[in-house]
Design a protein around this nucleic acid. Sequence first.
DNA 1: AAGATATATCGGGTTTTCCCGATATTTAGA
DNA 2: TCTAAATATCGGGAAAACCCGATATATCTT
Lengths: 99, 99
Amino acid sequence: MEQVDIFKALSNKTRLQILEWLKEPAQNFPDQEHAGYENGVCVGQIQAKAALTQSTVSEYLSILQRAGFVQSTRVGQWTYYKRNEEAFAKLSKIIKSNI
Amino acid sequence: MEQVDIFKALSNKTRLQILEWLKEPAQNFPDQEHAGYENGVCVGQIQAKAALTQSTVSEYLSILQRAGFVQSTRVGQWTYYKRNEEAFAKLSKIIKSNI
DNA sequence: AAGATATATCGGGTTTTCCCGATATTTAGA
DNA sequence: TCTAAATATCGGGAAAACCCGATATATCTT
């Protein structure tokens, strides 16, 4: 993954919003309460909130995952996505000193 | 300037490279020695190193400036661009805590 | 004032991104 | 094993970004 692709992943309003939402899963996705939030939030919940099609949201999550900002866990027929805070810390450092 | 436009400004290899070059003006632009580096580096020097057309480089610098990453100073017929380190520090913090 | 130099702006062809609908894949349950 | 549900992948039209050449603007020199 090249530097520029990291920034491309963040160059979209919806993707930035998804990352924000995932900071507070319980508050932003109360409908998923029954399943808990240990593994993050499933695609369907994110899609409903983003108000885009399922395919688009799935692709966006894939882009964020390739860039390292989220990680996914498959549980049955659901795929849960949660933030990978290390990636943000790493990028923060890079911007502070390398760029 | 919206968050997403900050990242769009960084979503291009050449623009990232320009920002890197401007970290060490004397080393990366030795041909400008006579004029000093207090105000940064002039467009022509950056253009030569980037190997893109003058219009493209001028536009790229404008994009970086709108995003706050560089600031310009006009001296005679030259426009000098230098890094604005505050913008990087600010973005670093935002990524660490806000995004 | 006229010509030369440096930079900015404009118009547009090419490439990439956005976002969709259709379809394929994976897993659960009857 | 058949159907349903959740997600991933594919193909493509529309919008945006890339990058160019041509031209406009600003400043310097003569």
